[in-house]
């Protein structure tokens, strides 16, 4: 029994890596651009479909297709911010929320129209089934492990980008005080769009790993959004390492709930979120 629970906990930590990937982009959006993107999950699903199309079209491995999908995603997110969301930033923040809500519904139904309601999976080949024996009787999937490691590297890179680079300083400056940034000559619309392009890069990687590990269909977006949101809030709004911690907590909770059935898996995740949120509303590592 103890071994089974330990096994579930390990699987949960690994699952948390995937959830952290979903959430990183949202964490940046919330922490830096100061809005909640309701279409975040749907954009990830859209990118999973795009990855699928690239893989099958070119006959290459999903991980290799990132070379193409990441730049495309950056461009998509950049354009989304620059052409659409920027037009309402600075006004009532709820308008941005409602616009992303409209985008979410358009993406869901556009995918349904284009790809049908079937569930899909990215073809991972041998990577899908490869395992590593950690201890006698304890196996860990190579793919989940790779996912967690990639998530950690992503957090580290984003942290470097935000706190050690020129673009990062500009992004934080514009986020601190847009009006002052404009007044001293920072091109804030371009800076916000660049930040959104970074979000796009994380979303593309998340979409690839999600598609390799889980089934997805045009309606999967909202559940991804909720998990990402929960990880961000649990970690503390705007804290990247906190988002990783939040993702892992959710992964473990879901994994243990999943011992019973799929519905309990989801219930356990949401319940854990609400409970921890009630006890610690500021999150694990609050920034603000």
């Amino acid at each position: 029994m103890a071994a089974a629970i330990a096994d579930q906990a390990i699987q949960g930590v690994l699952l948390g890596g995937l959830y952290c990937m979903f959430a990183l982009g949202l964490s940046l959006t919330v922490g830096v651009l100061r809005f909640v993107n309701i279409a975040h999950g749907d954009l990830i699903v859209l990118l999973s479909f795009l990855t699928l199309a690239v893989c099958t079209g070119l006959g290459i491995h999903p991980l290799l297709s990132l070379v193409l999908v990441v730049p495309l995603s950056c461009a998509l997110f950049y354009a989304l911010q620059r052409l659409l969301l920027q037009r309402v930033t600075g006004q009532n923040p709820l308008l941005v929320l409602l616009i992303t809500f409209g985008i979410a519904i358009i993406i869901q139904n556009g995918l349904l129209q284009g790809f049908g309601a079937d569930t899909r999976k990215l073809p991972g080949g041998a990577l899908e089934t490869a395992t590593w024996q950690v201890a006698p009787g304890l196996y860990v999937g190579i793919l989940p492990l790779l996912t967690l490691l990639t998530a950690i590297v992503m957090v580290w890179l984003l942290d470097l980008l935000l706190y050690r680079s020129r673009l990062g300083a500009r992004i934080r400056a514009a986020s601190d005080d847009v009006a002052a940034a404009n007044l001293i000559g920072l091109p804030t619309p371009r800076i916000f769009a660049a930040a959104m392009a970074v979000v796009g890069a994380t979303a593309a990687v998340a979409a690839c790993f999600m598609g390799l590990q889980m089934n997805f269909d045009p309606a999967s977006g909202p559940s991804r959004l909720l998990i990402a949101f929960e990880a961000v809030v649990l970690g503390g709004l705007g804290s990247l390492w906190g988002t990783l911690a939040g993702g892992i907590v959710l992964g473990v909770a879901q994994s243990i709930g999943g011992e019973f059935d799929a519905a309990w898996q989801a219930i356990a995740g949401h319940a854990a979120f609400l409970l921890i949120f009630l006890l610690r509303p500021q999150g694990f590592f609050p920034k603000y």
């Binding site: 020129r166 300083a169 500009r170 934080r172 400056a173 601190d176 005080d177 009006a179 002052a180 940034a181 007044l183 001293i184 920072l186």
Partner: peptide, 14 residues
């Protein structure tokens, strides 16, 4: 109107 979450040096660098 300095950027409060940036360090002094980062503010100057901007």
């Amino acid at each position: 109107r300095l950027f409060p979450s940036l360090t002094v040096e980062e503010n100057l660098a901007i």
